[in-house]
């Protein structure tokens, strides 16, 4: 299915409302294989909802999502687009990994069991293979010495790295990150971003919702600025972050940079 001109992820005119609140107003974007797309925007602008539509955690009201050419969540029956069976949707989700702001590590399992659970219980690997693969993924995120630790014994940064390993264990075609460093203490952000940079360098296709503009600038293939359920501006990081055309983008970026400087320098944040 993989062909060089077809994007790995294609989102076309996605719309989603909660009651009267229109959260996504026809969002279209795409990501080529190996690209890292960074999505920025104020809280409530629909970034999480967009990600959740990509793996069908949320059922969009309109529009289509394709991953590696396959339509997510729906299929043609006759001439009607009908929601797929649970089994089918589950299979599709396996090729889309997701990393959450709050880690969502399974607290009753060790780090190794967290990573091995999905490959094993979806029948992708047998027990021995799953354990071996999990150990390998933990090594990839630099946690081979914490295999047997439970979530409560791990720092936030380590938990998030376990969560990344857990997503990687399903060998996904694309990884979605929803503000992966927003719940972390500032000194732990770096270790998670380092893992993500490595993944990007290794050719993983990633869609990253983040407030880490520095990361977006260094790693992003493109940056998308969203506001009020729509894409306001998108393009190469240098353009969107360096010389934004839209005023809302400019305001947002200067606000985030100001916050960043304040949290990086304690003398500034205590001064006001």
């Amino acid at each position: 299915m993989t062909d060089t001109t077809e994007p790995m992820v294609r989102v076309s005119q996605i719309r989603k409302s909660y009651g009267k609140l229109e959260v996504l107003k026809g969002v279209s974007m795409q990501s080529m294989k190996g690209e890292t797309v960074c999505v920025i925007g104020p809280s409530g602008s629909g970034k999480s909802t967009l990600l959740r539509c990509i793996n069908h955690l949320e059922r969009p009201d309109g529009g289509l999502v394709f991953v590696d050419g396959e339509m997510i969540g729906y299929e043609l029956r006759g001439s009607r687009l009908t929601e797929r069976t649970d089994r089918d949707v589950e299979r599709q989700r396996r090729s889309v990994g997701m990393v959450f702001q709050r880690f969502n590590i399974f607290p009753h399992l060790t780090a190794l069991e967290n990573v091995a659970l999905a490959p094993r219980s979806t029948g992708l690997l047998n027990r021995r293979e799953a354990t071996a693969a999990a150990a390998e993924q933990l090594e990839r995120v630099g946690l081979s010495d914490r295999k047997d630790a439970y979530a409560r014994q791990l720092s936030g940064g380590q938990q998030q790295r376990v969560a990344i390993a857990r997503a990687l264990a399903m060998s996904p075609k694309v990884l979605l990150f929803d503000e992966p460093t927003s719940a972390l203490d500032p000194e732990l952000v770096g270790e998670v971003l380092a893992v993500m940079k490595e993944l990007a360098a290794g050719g993983m296709t990633m869609i990253v919702v983040t407030h880490e503009l520095q990361f977006a600038r260094e790693v992003g293939s493109q940056v998308i600025f969203m506001d009020e359920g729509a894409i306001v501006e998108q393009g190469p990081p240098d353009e969107v972050l360096g010389s934004p055309k839209n005023e809302r983008t400019r305001n947002f970026i200067s606000r985030v940079f100001k916050d960043d400087r304040q949290s990086a320098d304690p003398s500034l944040s205590t001064a006001n």
Binding site: N55, L57, D86, R87, E90, R91, Q92, R93, R94, V96, G97, M98, F100, R102, N104, I105, F106, P107, H108, L117, A118, S121, T122, A163, R166, A167, M170
Partner: peptide, 27 residues
């Protein structure tokens, strides 16, 4: 049990049954 747990299991492609028996009920 925190809804994020179900969400993480679902996102991994676990079936509803596996989500219940492997993730939610043990917790």
């Amino acid at each position: 049990v925190e809804s994020g747990q179900t969400e993480a299991a679902t996102a991994l492609g676990l079936s509803r049954r596996a989500t219940l028996t492997k993730v939610v009920l043990p917790q």
